[in-house]
Design a protein around this nucleic acid. Structure first.
Lengths: 191, 191, 191, 191
DNA sequence: GATGAATGAGCGTTCATTCAT
DNA sequence: CATGAATGAACGCTCATTCAT
């Protein structure tokens, strides 16, 4: 088996178990078992469990980022761009429920706080589509002039909530409902 | 010391430690220590740690429920009632950050799922102000005709997010900003 | 069983196993087993394995110190005092081979270096019979005027070597031989 | 690279790491790394770690043996020969502290016991300069008539102790001091 | 021959829970 | 009733050794 494959097996096993059971419910031995490798093998790819968790988060974030940026046109109107990003993100989560659950677990953990700070306050040079979009929208007076953190809350809060409820089976999201919910998010932030 | 007092000490210690450090950072021995009781004593009040956690959640919920219902008048317009509930809730969280952090920890854990289901789908007979409000608002065509879960998401999602950001210091909520954010939530759900 | 007894069981088990097999050959689980307690119990008495090892060393040292000081008269001639201390020490080791082996293991380990430095250079305020004796002897020109460390080496070096050889069965020390060897040590350091 | 060179690299890496960090601090992977070879390669030269350790000891011993025998003349008087051997040995250790530290680690380990036994009791036919010297000295009544093990203890005990203290910086040995200490050793064993 | 990825037994340590006092 | 000493399963992690390439 190629080296890459083994790493992938580990990452996938970690993703599944953590998504399903939380960090608690995913001991290294169980991850190794699910991945079909020895426990020691995991440590050849990740220095420790924390790093495995963080690395997996980063990779997911990059993957999601690239997916939602497909077809994104920065010259279109703010509203259209907002709808695009939100729809793409929500669709991604619905189609990849494990990824969603993992991200959720991660954000609600000590790691998550630092990441959230960077997202809101802007990390060293790294651009964030949402932040740029909000800042531009506020400037153009299309979006309410409230702090960025509030705009993030008004957008992601509902989004992540409905994604979760859908995955848990409390609601069933189809294209029409997705569209209505995202319109509602837009109603929340638009001036 | 009265039996009640001892129980309260345990509950308060658990609240503080779990709010500050998460479930991980609150072993029974530490809770007992902070409460000033023996570890065994906790098991005289709660059959096990899970039950302590769940019971504490229930009590917090009841307390919050009663606080936000103060001055709530069901004969007032939907909008006004919505603003009242949301403002009271957000204020409560800001003034009681430990309670908020605890609720957050709880919701983001295996326990949380069942609770959320009950809230959305309606538990055995127990009334929920929000659900009633939303149902009435939808009926009166004041609120968007989307599933209850979506309305919950559009309301609580932003609320909990800004509460967290405030507590973490990423945003500073004053009365004016609270009002604007809750208005924005209303914009999101109103027809 | 009294608390003290359990602690003693742990300490004795650690002493035996480490003396017999070295630090390597004395995992916590084995010590617990030999002591007849659960592994977790050890951690109620010692914060970690290192502390157990260090504490055991200290206690042994104190015990040995008090034994060899029995009947020690500081007004007697240097030579007589030297013979007394060395004889008492060597006898102690022969009669308590586990203690000897333990001390040996300890001294030959990272911990041991610091202890040795203190012994030679003189720790804060703590008096050491040997150091005082050597210093007095050098001053009185009864003992060779070479560095303390050299005097320690000329005394303890042979002592510990023969103790080891006796315990390992390479030599059999009786009172006469002990006396001759210690006289030889004196020959080495005396002017 | 020649086979011999690779083996030397491994042996040197093992020597350095074990001397510096003890057996604990020298995992096979680290030795391989330092030697610039693959971990598996080590097992082509040594069946297992224990054998590497023992073989390294033997080689060091042979090297030391040959060095201290330089200029050794068995026709000279006992005393002179003793001073020669001890001086050469002490000098060697001071000039090769890694070798010394390694020997020390080795002697204070399960392996060491067997080696010591051989040295004192005389291994199958292998001659040992010191043993011969002591036996001859005792016979000529130049050296005290005590067991060989005691003579070894009175000679090597101080020697190894001062070597260690010098390497650890507790004492500074120059030629004069070395001479005085070895004279003192001689005082200890001579009749 | 040489490699280093893979392995899993074994380590030190934690902590929810029990139970004798 | 209240206690806290005792427990041992379970955890994250290490490392000597193997073996497919």
């Amino acid at each position: 088996m190629a080296r890459r494959d083994k790493r992938d097996d580990i990452v996938r096993a970690a993703l599944e178990l953590i998504a399903e059971n939380g960090f608690h419910g995913a001991p290294i031995a169980m991850i190794a078992d699910r991945a079909g490798v020895g426990t020691g093998t995991i440590y050849r790819y990740f220095a420790n469990k924390d790093l495995l968790i963080s690395k997996l988060y980063q990779e997911l974030e990059e993957k999601i980022q690239s997916v939602i940026m497909e077809g994104y046109a920065s010259e279109k109107p703010i509203r259209e761009r907002f709808l695009h990003l939100c729809t793409a993100l929500l669709r991604y989560f619905i189609e990849n429920p494990l990824d969603f659950r993992y991200m959720e677990q991660f954000h609600n953990s000590p790691y998550g706080v630092a990441v959230r700070r960077d997202k809101i306050l802007g990390k060293k040079g790294e651009p964030d589509m949402y932040r740029e979009l909000f800042e531009e929208g506020v400037e153009q007076q299309v979006i309410k002039g409230i702090p960025l953190a509030a705009l993030f809350a008004l957008s992601f809060g509902p989004l992540l909530n409905v994604a979760r409820d859908h995955i848990l089976g409390f609601i069933t999201l189809d294209d029409a409902l997705i569209a209505r919910i995202i319109e509602a998010c837009w109603d929340g932030i638009r001036r």
